[in-house]
Design a protein around this nucleic acid. Structure first.
Lengths: 235, 235
DNA sequence: AGCGCTCTGTCCGTTGTCGTACATAACAAC
DNA sequence: GTTGTTATGTACGACAACGGACAGAGCGCT
């Protein structure tokens, strides 16, 4: 089976939606970084040092439960940013931000971002829109966790990931997936087998491919429709 | 058993946190309203006409799933407002806002609110803080729905309600609770019986009392700690 | 070839919740 | 009172997911 292949370069849409002038000014304050699989950008309770704008990388937001479990509540890719709390005037992050797909991003110091956010109405607008989208995503996740079975949730998760990294092939183990979905690894095994049997996906030892996107969509719950990142024309 | 008793008057904290000048100016734009049990302030997809600031009333935010189920993802009382999407530049609400506890509130027209929000930095600040709190609440709900059983979730829900209406006695049926928690009525019956047997609550035909707040806290999951509205001194 | 590590698959008894159906209890209206 | 309505309680089989333990399978390393 195929290993990971790099997609075409993807630029962060939140930044891309800004008018030229803002973008140019901010360019000097943005530091390009490479995010590696497994990196933890922040832990709950940490002061926010940087905000991150993923390009082709993918970051999971995990909320702690019972000082023991963690559960993914949001997935951030090129359509958003990590560190939205800062825009809301909160200096401390409530979530763990875990790099789930390696790739590039740009980042900005917290103080710089706050200043920019106050000054640029367009940045405010874009960040506000993204916060709303993220909120919807989290709400949908809450409902999905309540009503849908592992198989549907797995399908949804794979599609969301696909949309954000722009590739049908990515690296992840069942252990990791179980962690994200809040189920046992064995639960993932069963769900994944079912999808594999139907030739919707294939996987082996830490690599996974989506074979039939349409089929996977119909296997996933309707929650996927809600959290799909919309296409937006660049200005 | 006791019926509902009115608590002392509670004023909306989000508004109360504003400096005198802002508050005075806004007073003329705020219209006092009485919210009745069962009122629906908005349905998903509706344009937002007003934002609401509950005093002693209580509003549930419900997200639709599968065009069939609904699930509560947030609970708004005196500490917040209904219609946060508007502050984020979204004119259409993604949730149903259902009045779960009758009481008073004030409301403001959408256009007026947007104007005020743009002009008053303090209002921005307070609304931003609340949006963050709401986001945390929703995230916690997502995790809670995944890991905790009906009994714990019920206990948490009762405590959250208590905190927001300021009374240990309120009106609600098991049918309604099942709806909020996303479980069958019978599931609520079992959980409620367990809590009643332990003398933590009492209830009968649509009325419910919290008898032992401390005990109920330990019966609830730790999620309650996270979403408890913090005391804040009025400036 | 052999070893060890990691990832995936299987098994089994248990638990929480589901779906459905029906039974009792409290209150209201007449 | 009688009757109707609403709220709550009980019962039973079905099923998804759990927790834990163990069995293969793929791959790198020596």
């Amino acid at each position: 089976m195929k290993k990971i292949v790099g997609g075409m370069p993807i630029a962060n849409r939140l930044l891309a939606a800004l008018p030229r002038a803002d973008r140019e000014r901010m360019r000097t304050m943005l530091e390009p970084v490479t995010l590696n699989f497994g990196d933890v950008l922040c832990e709950p309770g940490d002061p926010i040092r940087h905000v991150y704008f993923p390009n082709d990388s993918l970051v999971s937001l995990l909320t702690p439960v019972d000082r023991q479990h963690l559960l993914e509540v949001g997935l951030v890719g090129f359509e958003g940013m990590v560190g939205t709390a800062l825009a809301l005037g909160i200096a401390v992050t409530p979530v763990r931000a875990l790099v789930q797909g390696a790739g590039s991003a740009t980042r900005m110091g917290a103080a710089t971002f706050r200043k920019e956010f106050q000054q640029s109405l367009r940045l405010q607008r874009e960040v506000h829109l993204y916060i709303h989208a993220l909120m919807s995503q989290v709400a949908q996740t809450a409902a999905c966790n309540r009503f849908h079975n592992v198989e549907s949730r797995l399908a949804r998760w794979l599609l969301m990931t696909r949309d954000r990294v722009g590739s049908n092939h990515f690296r992840l183990t069942q252990e990791f997936l179980g962690f994200m979905l809040g189920v046992r690894r064995v639960g993932v095994t069963h769900a994944a087998q079912a999808l594999k049997r139907r030739k919707l996906i294939d996987y082996s030892r830490g690599y996974l491919s989506i074979l039939n996107e349409r089929g996977l969509e119909s296997a996933s719950c309707s929650c996927y429709e809600v959290v799909k990142p919309r296409k937006r024309a660049n200005p």
